[in-house]
Design a binder for these strands. Structure first.
Lengths: 157, 157
DNA sequence: CGGATTTAGTTTCCGCGTAAACTAAATTTT
DNA sequence: AAAATTTAGTTTACGCGGAAACTAAATCCG
């Protein structure tokens, strides 16, 4: 009833061949899933994963230069400028140019920013857990550890 | 010499706290790395990972509907339209509207498209390997398997 | 010192991917 | 069979992220 080679039948299984073993492809899928989970759990506060991460790092390193953060989090300078502007505009972050180097920009959390991180810390950290849907705790730990190795997070850049 | 709490010294180690264990963050880093590797190894042919993947799947399933591919590869319809247009424009793919359903669009590789996939198959598959930089073969396999589980690639959607 | 280079960040412009609204065709309902 | 609904794909408008060119300040060097 249906053509042998051509995919005329809608319900025919779709062959994916070797891409199902492609790290690049799998990582892209994982990215999508992680993103979905993020919004399911803390979409309400209106920040995106990247923004939250920046906020987090500023909280841990008040006064860090904008460029250092960009470098650490693998965000490009051009993007960092806009991202920072957004956070400032929301009143979560302040920029300060030190007298010692008037090119530089140092970042600090505002009161509100501090409160924000404090308020969402649990949610943000649990976001690591809720997205482990299909994984046991051990598997999740293993995945985390392998990704760290793969990305060279330990060895720094 | 430097302020205790503030990050006045440039070379001070940057604290990242719990995000180094955040799957979402790690996956983003992995994504960036995979992307870099892709372009290092086959950036010359001018296709991006997503485009190559689509080409690949069409090759394995000639005549598949555009929407089915989008669904399988988690590409949104709106994007799929543009992506397909690009591939058609490069002469790698042809679109065909079957008489049985004049809304649908079926996709096929052209001669050139077939040749293209054929020519880059090795490169494309080895792309899985070259990006395993920091990982042993066993670790890479393990990572692949965990990502499959995490993304639910086995269980389908 | 004063010109050349480097460094920090910004601005402009562009492409990718998405959401929402839309067009057209098939299907369901009555 | 006509109206309502669903389905397939496209169009439009927008935001995110990046590359390249730029501005301004600091450093290097003769």
């Amino acid at each position: 009833m249906r053509d042998a080679m051509e995919q005329e039948a809608e319900d025919a299984p779709i062959r994916m061949g070797a891409i199902t073993d492609s790290l690049g492809f799998l990582i892209r899928l994982a990215q999508i899933k992680a993103f979905d989970n993020f919004f399911e759990n803390l979409g309400d506060h209106g920040l995106k994963p990247g923004e939250f991460t920046v906020l987090w790092v500023i909280g841990l390193n008040p006064g860090l230069r904008q460029g250092s953060i960009a470098n650490t989090l693998r965000i490009k300078p051009a993007h960092m400028t806009k991202l920072t502007a957004r956070l400032v505009q929301r009143g979560l972050v302040t920029r300060k140019t030190p007298k010692s180097d008037r090119r530089a920009v140092r970042l600090y959390l505002t009161e509100e920013g501090s409160g924000f991180v404090e308020a969402h810390r649990e949610n943000f950290l649990s976001f690591n857990f809720t997205e482990k849907d299909n994984l046991s705790q051990e598997e999740a730990d293993q995945l985390t550890s392998l990704l760290k190795k793969f990305t060279g997070l330990n060895a720094c850049h």
